[in-house]
Amino acid sequence: MEKTQNNRAWFLVLPVLVVVAFSAVIPLMTVVNYSVNDTFGNNQFFWAGLEWFEEMVTSSRLHEALLRQILFSAIILAIEVPLGIFIALNMPKGGFWASLCLILMALPLLIPFNVVGTIWQIFGRVDIGLLGHTLAALGIDYNYTNDPLDAWITVVVMDVWHWTSLVALLCYAGLQSIPQAYYQAAKIDQASRWAVFRYIELPKMKGVLLIAVLLRFMDSFMIYTEPFVVTGGGPGNATTFLSIDLVKMAVGQFDLGPAAAFSIMYFLVILLVSWVFYTVMTNMDRSQSDIPEAL
């Protein structure tokens, strides 16, 4: 859509360009630079070409981390999205209880990531943690520091605790925008509860659900702080996700070249997935508004 023409407007964009250049473009270029060079410090660089990329593409360490990452994202999406919808459907529609619910739901979202990690790290400890201790008292053999499965369960449950609220709140907002007349019409048409969900609630939530899935996917694909605080990527490499692996490689081993190549591929994957989501979403909007409401 065209707007009023005024070339002075470009000057107003300049500060943003400068900030973006310093905050994103220049650091990114540094990473690109690292990814095609070899360095031992002292600002000495040796041209390496695509060597690091080849190494990373074939690295089994990276493959394992990627698989773990995909599995993790898939699991938390499979739990958080249906659970979030379910919670949203059962939240009160208005009044005191609705406000209370909203506040309680928002709480986990307000806690800093490393604090969430610390909470669960302590919560799950068998010696002093409420959860770990209770489970042990019930005779369940639970120890997230030794058992890979327990570690996974802990990390997944922690993420579900932390982020399901976001999905639920977004869905709740979507549900609130459905006019009462739709529910009434469904009652009059004698529709079942499932039909109301399938034909009224789900279509109206589609937009916010896509945003929720996109946010949760990107976030879980980049997850670092919480599992790092709880398990440190262990036991072994059991909970070493991509970003944890990346940090180990870059900071722990100082393999800047491979780490840079890794970062770039990581970045491209997320960009690709986000683009796919964006395209799907805009296409959906277009089909929704192929007849404008008013010219």
Binding site: P179, A181, Y182, Q184, A185, I188, Y199, I200, P203
Partner: peptide
């Protein structure tokens, strides 16, 4: 019932 604003699925 037919409502003020069209209610269609």
């Amino acid at each position: 019932q037919v409502f003020q604003f069209p209610v269609v699925y």
